[in-house]
């Protein structure tokens, strides 16, 4: 890795973490800065801003076990059983930049998020939930079959 890009990456992610600590990454009425540091991070630890935390059975992660088309893989993260949820994120472990989407909840937000992701190759899909200052996750393996023969 080039030293320059590495330094830039760490600087960006530390800036994001300080922003999170200061409560700047809360939902707001004006479209604001896109969290580039965690979005371009190359591993799960970087993309979650310090690790995926402990596994939790309260997070319901709904993904297909076999995806016939890796370009459109439906994902559903339901953490309505948890209280004090601040954000819900969807990560694809096998992608170059694992973080696919992160949903920051306001007062009226419900801990639920669903979308469709591109998944390059078979690997784990991770749903990460931040609640009460702690991080929890649930993960499930997805097999991407090219050609759609279900193997």
């Amino acid at each position: 890795m080039k030293r320059r890009t590495f330094l830039r990456g760490t600087l960006a992610s530390s800036a994001i973490m300080t922003a999170m600590g200061a409560g700047l990454l809360a939902p707001r009425t004006v479209l604001a800065a896109w969290p580039e540091g965690i979005m371009t991070a190359k591993d799960v630890a970087g993309a979650t801003g310090g690790g995926a935390g402990e596994a939790s059975a309260s997070i319901k992660l709904d993904v297909p076990s076999i995806a016939e088309n890796g370009a459109v893989v439906p994902v559903k993260v339901d953490a309505t059983a948890m209280s004090g949820v601040e954000s819900v994120s969807i990560l694809v472990d096998s992608n170059g930049s694992p973080l696919a989407a992160t949903f920051v909840l306001g007062a009226d937000g419900v801990a639920f998020a669903s979308t469709r992701c591109k998944v390059g190759k078979s690997g784990n899909m991770v749903g990460v939930v931040k609640a009460g200052g702690k991080t929890y996750h649930a993960s499930k393996e997805v097999k991407v079959t090219v050609g759609g023969c279900g193997g």
């Binding site: 939902p27 707001r28 009425t29 896109w34 969290p35 979005m39 370009a71 459109v72 893989v73 559903k76 309505t80 694809v92 992608n95 930049s97 973080l99 696919a100 989407a101 992160t102 949903f103 920051v104 909840l105 306001g106 007062a107 009226d108 937000g109 419900v110 639920f112 998020a113 669903s114 979308t115 469709r116 992701c117 591109k118």
Partner: peptide, 27 residues
């Protein structure tokens, strides 16, 4: 935004599918 107040902010990456479908819930 619900009734003018921010309820959910979603930040997406390029790894969300083409013509994205986004499903959220709001009180």
């Amino acid at each position: 935004e619900k009734n003018g107040k921010a309820a959910v902010t979603a930040y997406l990456n390029g790894s969300v599918s083409t013509n994205p479908l986004v499903h959220v819930k709001v009180k």
